[in-house]
């Protein structure tokens, strides 16, 4: 353990953690746009600069490990002046179209502009041109809104092991792009979308379906593979419009293409909406009442004529424990057979 002082407060933290992480754990806010505790420190946005006693210049809290006896000042006039200037510089090369931006209300940059009360900008001038649209079906890449924090690059390379995108060009023309600035052709896990602090990377199918303040969030579990990833469904007008995942869960907020983008089946027009009974080879809609009666009568007749073992039941690895438990209880107690199985073997 290491003991150090942060804003006149004595703090004990495990060895090796950064000043930024230590501040987070002690509830002290230091702004940042390029840091994510699940990714390697980057030191790119310079917003997290702090004053360390004995070091003449300001240092970035995200890349500075805590040392024994260190004295750190997380904020003062000079620090805030610098931070404000950084945000101002970022905004000088940004569309600033928050009124129509998908990310409004959920955007780190917007919050910082509000925090620093940036109504005017000393640096307005030429803006970098990054207008090319990506035709892939999953991810909207609006590079006009990119602030080059590099979180997407790190998530793609380190977390996903893909490396579909990287920094390219220099200075004012610097941008993040797939090789040769072609369209994205990757695993489409959307980790990049999930870490993007602005509206530069968004899910295409969520566009126009409701901004963050209008959705209700419901935590649940992914319906695909057995990993059990935690999902947060964003619901607007009885429709799931976006899927995200919280970072403090077993999957650390990472998802795959199916979990993150494979949800629109919920609202498919093909969904079954009423019971169907086949008559003369054709399905006809029926009420639950007549369907229950029909099924019970037919199953009852087969049971009394051929015995319970003439009836089988196949349950589902997609259904819940409660449904599966009830299904096998139904087969065993109501029908009277152990002919119950599901697709674990397949």
């Amino acid at each position: 353990m290491v003991r150090f002082t942060l804003d006149d407060q004595e703090i004990v933290v495990p060895e090796g953690i950064t000043v930024l992480e230590a501040a987070r754990r002690s509830g002290i806010f230091i702004p940042t746009l390029c840091d994510d505790s699940r990714l390697e420190p980057f030191g790119g946005c310079r917003l997290c600069v702090v004053q360390v006693q004995g070091i003449p210049r300001l240092v970035t809290a995200c890349t500075t490990p805590v040392a024994e006896g260190m004295r750190v000042q997380s904020t003062n006039e000079e620090i805030e002046r610098r931070r404000r200037t950084i945000v101002e510089l970022i905004l000088s090369d940004h569309p600033n179209d928050c009124m129509v931006c998908e990310k409004a209300g959920d955007c780190n940059l917007q919050e910082l502009a509000y925090f620093y009360d940036l109504r005017t900008n000393r640096f307005y001038g030429q803006r970098s041109q990054r207008l090319v649209k990506d035709q892939n079906p999953f991810i909207e890449r609006d590079m006009e809104k990119c602030i080059l924090c590099g979180k997407c690059v790190r998530a793609c390379y380190d977390i996903q092991g893909v490396g579909a995108i990287d920094f390219t060009s220099r200075g004012f023309t610097a941008k993040i792009a797939p090789p040769f600035e072609k369209d994205l052709d990757c695993e489409f896990c959307g980790q990049c979308v999930s870490v993007c602090p602005t509206g530069a990377l968004m899910s295409k199918q969520s566009l126009g379906k409701g901004r963050q303040k209008d959705v209700q969030e419901v935590d649940t579990i992914c319906p695909y593979c057995g990993c059990g990833c935690n999902l947060t469904l964003h619901v607007s007008r009885n429709e799931v419009v976006r899927v995200t995942s919280r970072p403090d869960t077993i999957n650390e907020g990472w998802l795959c293409v199916k979990g993150r983008f494979g949800y629109s089946f919920i609202n498919s027009p093909d969904r079954l909406k009423t019971p169907l009974i086949k008559k003369d080879g054709k399905f006809a809609e029926a009420t639950w009442e007549e369907t229950f009666d029909y099924v019970a009568t037919r199953l009852g007749a087969i049971k009394s004529k051929h015995g319970p073992d003439a009836i089988g039941g196949l349950s589902s690895a997609r259904c819940s424990n409660e449904e599966n438990y009830l299904f096998q209880k139904f087969m065993r107690a109501a029908i009277g057979t152990n002919n119950v199985d599901h697709c674990a073997r397949l």
């Binding site: 579990i221 992914c222 319906p223 695909y224 593979c225 057995g226 990993c227 059990g228 349950s315 589902s316 690895a317 997609r318 259904c319 819940s320 424990n321 599966n324 438990y325 299904f327 096998q328 152990n338 002919n339 119950v340 199985d341 599901h342 697709c343 674990a344």
Partner: peptide
């Protein structure tokens, strides 16, 4: 063994097996 479906473990645990 990595289970392939969201609740294949639970379907087995809940007794949806013939034996």
């Amino acid at each position: 063994p990595l289970r392939g479906q969201n609740n294949v473990q639970g379907a087995c645990d809940a007794g949806c097996l013939p034996n």
